[in-house]
Computed example of a mutant assay.
Amino acid sequence: MLKVTRNLVVDRVRSAATRYETVTKVTHDVTQPDSTETVLASLEFTRLLGSLSSEHREVLAPTYLYGRTDQETAEILGVPAGTVRSRKHYALVKLRAQ
């Protein structure tokens, strides 16, 4: 989940840069957050996950927390792999929008 949160932050910074918005300078390495940032990111991500449907949450956990492929996740959930990809896509779209 932390990786997804980090990717969302990186995406936001990159999109701001392409729109020529002012982006504050990062004074530390964002790939290695300190414990405070980790806790805050976890709390924020937990809040964001609560806004997703259960179908979307159950796809994100095996994929991002356990590193499973879409096919492995599909077998675990008993749904087609295309459904896993679709749910994952729409879950990430909703997370990015928030």
Rank of each mutant, 00 (worst) to 15 (best):
E37N: 11
V30E: 08
R19S: 14
T18E: 15
V23I: 15
P62Q: 05
T46M: 03
A97F: 00
D70G: 11
K94L: 02
P80M: 01
T18P: 02
R68N: 13
L40W: 00
A81W: 01
L95S: 06
L48I: 02
V10F: 07
E75D: 15
Q71T: 12
E21G: 04
V84A: 09
F45S: 13
D34F: 10
T38A: 05
L52W: 06
R14I: 12
R12D: 12
S86R: 14
Q32P: 01
T22D: 12
G50I: 01
L40T: 02
T24L: 13
V13R: 13
I76S: 11
L95M: 07
A61Q: 01
L8S: 10
Y66K: 12
L48D: 12
H89V: 04
V9Y: 08
Y64C: 04
D34Q: 10
V59G: 03
A16S: 14
V84W: 02
N7R: 14
L52G: 10
R68T: 03
T18D: 14
P80K: 06
F45I: 04
T38W: 00
H56Q: 15
M1K: 08
L2H: 11
K94Y: 01
V39P: 00
L2I: 09
L60N: 10
A41S: 14
V23D: 05
A74F: 05
V13G: 00
L77V: 09
V26K: 01
T46C: 00
V39M: 10
R85Y: 04
T5A: 13
A16F: 03
T38S: 02
D11A: 14
E58V: 01
E55H: 09
A97M: 06
R6T: 07
G50T: 04
R85M: 08
T63S: 09
H28T: 15
V59C: 08
K94M: 04
G67T: 07
R57I: 06
N7W: 07
T46K: 05
E55V: 03
L48T: 03
V79S: 04
K88P: 05
A81R: 15
